[in-house]
Amino acid sequence: MGFKLLSKLLVYLTASIMAIASPLAFSVDSSGEYPTVSEIPVGEVRLYQIADGVWSHIATQSFDGAVYPSNGLIVRDGDELLLIDTAWGAKNTAALLAEIEKQIGLPVTRAVSTHFHDDRVGGVDVLRAAGVATYASPSTRRLAEVEGNEIPTHSLEGLSSSGDAVRFGPVELFYPGAAHSTDNLIVYVPSASVLYGGCAIYELSRTSAGNVADADLAEWPTSIERIQQHYPEAQFVIPGHGLPGGLDLLKHTTNVVKAHTNRSVVE
């Protein structure tokens, strides 16, 4: 069995187990497998329904001669939608809004960016022009300005110390501490036991640490421990890039980060 097929099978099995364990909360999309990078042309966006009122959005972007996937989250909030992270750029984010209108038909009224990198804030200006209120932590807003990236308009308070959590509509926002970046936030959907790890969490097929220019490698494993301790009931975990899975993604990420750190020390 090929690795790609095995990865998709694991996603399907995880979703099936969740649907059985929580039949009222989960209505997993039966329309197909989780979209992969090879299936999404740059400039297009796919939506994948995880649970009743919960979707991931998947886009792709060219970077350094390669094409990478990027995940975000959409959560229903009454007759409105909360968006977590842009679709990595203005063109993708405009396509995301169009796809949401086509498939869901509810307005996106608020959006949260989970850290300051372009795959999370690139497209904020498109959201703002569409009347979406954009939010991020003060740290993310400051770092985005320093980096020359787009800056969300509103500040999220109460997320300055490791372990801080605040309720934001249908989700809980959690600051686990520094990891992929010093400002990275985690998003949890309690009604569906869905954990969105953003770039602080890796997919299972990833074996290298990737972009760690703004990471705190020493603190990252401790931050992941905080996530595990705060959300032990999480059933569906979405990484910032690639295929979702279960809580095993947290341990896998820790292993990859520690291996990278150990290699760096040896070198």
Rank of each mutant, 00 (worst) to 15 (best):
67 V>G: 10
206 R>G: 14
261 T>Y: 09
40 I>Q: 10
246 G>T: 13
48 Y>M: 15
10 L>Q: 15
79 D>V: 09
136 A>Y: 01
226 R>M: 09
184 N>K: 02
119 D>K: 00
190 P>Y: 06
63 F>I: 07
258 K>W: 09
117 H>A: 00
2 G>W: 09
122 G>Q: 09
64 D>W: 15
233 E>A: 12
199 C>A: 01
152 P>V: 02
210 G>T: 01
5 L>D: 15
155 S>T: 14
64 D>V: 12
250 L>T: 04
231 Y>I: 02
241 H>T: 01
56 S>K: 07
58 I>Y: 08
260 H>M: 06
128 R>H: 12
89 G>Y: 06
179 A>W: 04
230 H>K: 15
102 K>I: 13
184 N>H: 03
124 V>W: 04
182 T>E: 12
246 G>R: 10
218 A>G: 13
57 H>S: 04
46 R>H: 09
126 V>Q: 05
138 P>M: 08
84 I>W: 00
29 D>M: 10
174 F>P: 01
185 L>T: 03
131 G>V: 06
230 H>N: 14
119 D>E: 03
239 P>M: 01
164 D>C: 04
141 R>F: 03
65 G>Q: 09
237 V>D: 04
263 R>Y: 12
62 S>I: 07
81 L>R: 02
266 V>G: 14
104 I>T: 04
133 A>T: 13
129 A>I: 09
244 P>G: 04
175 Y>H: 07
96 L>I: 05
145 E>S: 12
159 L>R: 02
264 S>Y: 09
223 S>F: 05
168 F>I: 07
6 L>N: 15
24 L>Q: 11
4 K>G: 06
71 N>I: 04
85 D>M: 00
121 V>Q: 00
267 E>F: 10
178 A>R: 11
161 S>Y: 13
228 Q>T: 14
77 D>H: 08
221 P>V: 11
39 E>R: 11
104 I>W: 00
226 R>V: 08
32 G>C: 07
176 P>G: 02
146 V>H: 13
148 G>L: 07
221 P>H: 06
140 T>M: 03
241 H>A: 02
138 P>Y: 08
161 S>H: 13
132 V>H: 00
78 G>I: 08
31 S>T: 11
127 L>A: 04
130 A>V: 11
145 E>F: 13
134 T>N: 02
219 E>Y: 06
176 P>H: 03
36 T>I: 14
9 L>K: 15
30 S>V: 12
104 I>L: 07
179 A>K: 02
72 G>V: 02
21 A>E: 14
131 G>M: 07
42 V>S: 14
110 R>S: 11
215 A>F: 01
213 A>E: 11
44 E>R: 13
75 V>E: 03
187 V>H: 00
42 V>C: 08
63 F>N: 04
118 D>L: 12
186 I>D: 02
257 V>Q: 02
127 L>I: 03
198 G>R: 04
170 P>F: 01
130 A>S: 11
102 K>V: 13
28 V>M: 15
261 T>R: 11
132 V>F: 02
40 I>P: 15
114 T>I: 00
136 A>C: 06
44 E>I: 08
264 S>D: 13
261 T>H: 14
120 R>W: 01
141 R>I: 10
179 A>S: 06
244 P>S: 04
77 D>M: 02
186 I>C: 02
69 P>I: 13
234 A>W: 02
61 Q>F: 07
8 K>M: 13
103 Q>P: 07
32 G>Q: 09
194 V>Y: 03
81 L>F: 01
204 L>M: 14
57 H>A: 04
98 A>W: 12
37 V>N: 14
73 L>F: 05
160 S>V: 12
53 G>H: 09
178 A>H: 10
16 S>K: 08
88 W>A: 00
28 V>N: 11
60 T>E: 05
30 S>A: 14
222 T>M: 12
261 T>A: 11
179 A>Q: 00
180 H>F: 00
254 T>K: 12
38 S>K: 07
135 Y>A: 03
191 S>K: 12
111 A>V: 06
23 P>K: 11
164 D>V: 08
219 E>G: 07
233 E>T: 11
197 G>H: 00
203 E>P: 01
87 A>Q: 00
4 K>A: 06
25 A>R: 14
265 V>A: 12
